[in-house]
Design a protein around this nucleic acid. Sequence first.
DNA 1: TGAGAATAATGAGTTTGATTCAATTTGCGT
DNA 2: ACGCAAATTGAATCAAACTCATTATTCTCA
Lengths: 322, 322
Amino acid sequence: MSNQIGLGLHHLKTLNALRQTGSLVEAARMLHLTQSALSHQVKELESRIGMELFVRKSKPLRFTSAGLRLLTLADDLLPQIRLAEQDLLRLAGGESGRLHMAIECHSCFQWLMPTIDSYREHWPEVEMDFASGFNFAPLPALARAELDLVITSDPLLSPELVYIPLFDYEMLLAVSRRHPLAQKEWIAPTDLRQETLITYPVEHSRLAVFKDFMDKAGEEPAATRTAEMTLMMLQLVASQRGVCALPNWALAEYLDKSHIQCRPLGEQGIWCTLYAAIRAEHQEQPYIVDFLETAKETCFSRLDGIRPCKTNEVSYSLSTVL
Amino acid sequence: MSNQIGLGLHHLKTLNALRQTGSLVEAARMLHLTQSALSHQVKELESRIGMELFVRKSKPLRFTSAGLRLLTLADDLLPQIRLAEQDLLRLAGGESGRLHMAIECHSCFQWLMPTIDSYREHWPEVEMDFASGFNFAPLPALARAELDLVITSDPLLSPELVYIPLFDYEMLLAVSRRHPLAQKEWIAPTDLRQETLITYPVEHSRLAVFKDFMDKAGEEPAATRTAEMTLMMLQLVASQRGVCALPNWALAEYLDKSHIQCRPLGEQGIWCTLYAAIRAEHQEQPYIVDFLETAKETCFSRLDGIRPCKTNEVSYSLSTVL
DNA sequence: TGAGAATAATGAGTTTGATTCAATTTGCGT
DNA sequence: ACGCAAATTGAATCAAACTCATTATTCTCA
């Protein structure tokens, strides 16, 4: 008779995910559950409350007043719980540690900076450092324990490394607004035959445009040139010096301002996953785990166009079995 | 890997109960769980956090910093959840209703007033009223639906009534500090042979001092006289006009101030349960359920000496089976 | 408007975590 | 050292929450 409703934290998390994603399927993916689970869960909760939590029909998913009430509750509670858990982890498992990281793509600074900022508040003792640039291979360095974390979308499987997926994103081709390709709905590999493709200065085999798009069709762009920074690439694109493939979330903020448009690669689009690579021994380390958690939160709250990823973790043993 | 700790609301509730009661046994009783359950629960949580939550030895149960951190979390979250659930209940199941109540013992005003105050904030539409006094029988009136809630420690089983236990309390004998009985550790039935016993003006068979103490031993006090109010009784006791049996929680606030002392009745003491009687059909009514919830909260936070009760609910069918 | 794809609901079966029960250990007062 | 109450422990049980497989609904685009 007590606790009529029996609200649980998972309910709040579900509602929250539901709001962020706008659909059961996506929310389920974000929570690493099945869509069925959520359906049951919500239904059960609704029956206990005695009214619906959201209107099912209608695409961007509208919440009822009851749903909204629970969402405000979630907004109050979840962050507090997050903080408390962080405090506990710090209290328990050594406050300090080393977190030397490297990113493979400069765009990542966009979310890495805020991530680090909020992380540092909670782990002031963790010694942080980064390296970036295309002139050295970070993953081997990670395996050798010269680094502790590498952000990459191009996993290099190795027994001592584990890849934690952060989010899925789409590779888009950025073209000038006046460029003929801007007219097309989506880009075919042959469309790039006469284009100059601007890329980061790394081997083509590690770039999704090549690996998953051009190479598959046996096509090549007319020319390639490299640039180290996203902004510079976009300047070149805007000046009609070429086209380039970039993550949708990195592009998002430039789309209105600049004279740039973007188009999917292929009819389905090319979707990639961004991973955080860490050494397997670090998998349970509170200060590492919390960094990853913070990173995901930051990304999902600041980046447009990204999606929660299906898989939960990629390690050597796991994926070599597949 | 996500959500390292997996904190749940039941953890917070447990910690909270542990603080209030000071022991696993009592906390378990308060939560209507076994003590074993709590032991497992706490142990599991501690193992996930990686440190102890409280020091086991040491009687008034000391919390570690981790434990304290979680308690502050509990203090933040639990009330918010409570509020949200109230809001939902109101949203869902009609905001209004009738709540006419009666108390059998004037002392209950002590906790009933604050209960009503905080209740009214959340259920402004509920129409409240009370009756009190010894000149009419409230339980039959409740069965006849003239009342909706009766506070009593003396259940009168009837098929349409249900008794929700609020808390357990001890009946104590109040005596003047200069009274000879003040010297005794505890009071025996024979001790009252030459005393004047002051009681509320109801049948003796409904008073625990008689039913569970004197009658059992076949004893009688030298005389009895009645008074309607606790305060008046205590004045009489202080003036050596007699002794009286009152609930420990009702006595608590007068002990220091006045020249009154109190002693257990019998070696084990006499423990009673205070119930809220409602009509069975009202068992699920949100506005009733919430009133009971509010009452319990108020009692446990304001009354000294009371204990959570073992049983969860007493109804006609249930107890006639026993 | 009707076929196909995506999303949601449903039912049965399974898993997992929380709880109980029974037995044992620990701590404390005499 | 003994005895009692409280706490721990392990095995067994139970129920909530989840998955899988299927069906129903809704959306969208020809």
